[in-house]
Design a binder for these strands. Sequence first.
DNA 1: ACTGAAACATAAGCATC
DNA 2: GATGCTTATGTTTCAGT
Lengths: 160, 160
Amino acid sequence: MSASSSPVDPAPLDALDRRLLTEFAEDGRITNAALAKRLGIAESTCLQRVRSLRERGVIRGVHADVDLAALGFPIQAVVKVRLGSHNRDHVASFHEVLAKVPGALRILHVGGEDDYLIHVAVSSTQQLRDLVLEHLNVHPVVRHTETQLVFEEIPGVGVL
Amino acid sequence: MSASSSPVDPAPLDALDRRLLTEFAEDGRITNAALAKRLGIAESTCLQRVRSLRERGVIRGVHADVDLAALGFPIQAVVKVRLGSHNRDHVASFHEVLAKVPGALRILHVGGEDDYLIHVAVSSTQQLRDLVLEHLNVHPVVRHTETQLVFEEIPGVGVL
DNA sequence: ACTGAAACATAAGCATC
DNA sequence: GATGCTTATGTTTCAGT
């Protein structure tokens, strides 16, 4: 799935949809009744809108945000990966490898100096080393990796 | 909030808590009744566990995952930032700037070649340029920025 | 710490305007 | 779209184990 094109129907979102999404992104457990009240619309209308947004793929899902450190993954890092060949088949087979990297929170295929940025959470530095050496560097198409430890995540404003 | 230390009580999570978190991270709208059934415990017990995990900060919140392209932010990028000085006050004032960057999905303070990695979503390349020039490069402590366009996000396995 | 049952709140479908 | 109604589900509390 591309970051610059979407699998979503071209049906544009109106201001109500945007407000709905903002509320829903903030509190994914909000009840339909409460959401309707906030938006100033009937509950049935609100339910219809939410369903439509889900069906169109605008709302992809709702997920609990879990403290990874509490779960036993206190270390985070970003691994920058550069490939030696950008041949189509090599890239495709590397994507299969990427999809299996344990602890990968986010994998971005980017343009510029690096080819991939992989944000990972691990339980120990040993696991981090194993992840880089055994899952990434082993692949022959990988020319270079560089691992940056995450010191801190700074809360941002987001997009909504 | 640090990535390697947690604001969470040292009370360790048992296997039930972990299963609960996995289910809840996958479907943040699951009803308490359904969650209890999946875990094979009483609804009242399940509710107690969820509440305890929330109070302890293990569950930080529940959020809808919204397609940013559909919302009018079809372009994503990662901006790598290097500072010229790592003086404590300079860093602190830069953090205040970071917290206001429009469209920032994730801001990581990292160790290694870069100092900060900022994942952003924007509506246009013009907005991206403005974001980098007017919000980041203007700050005197910023020595260098490099912007990498996100081509694609590759689904990973996650940590759960 | 877990359970079951009662009281309460919410959701979902349908007919109607 | 909005409303009101109905049934089915889901949530919460609490006394008991």
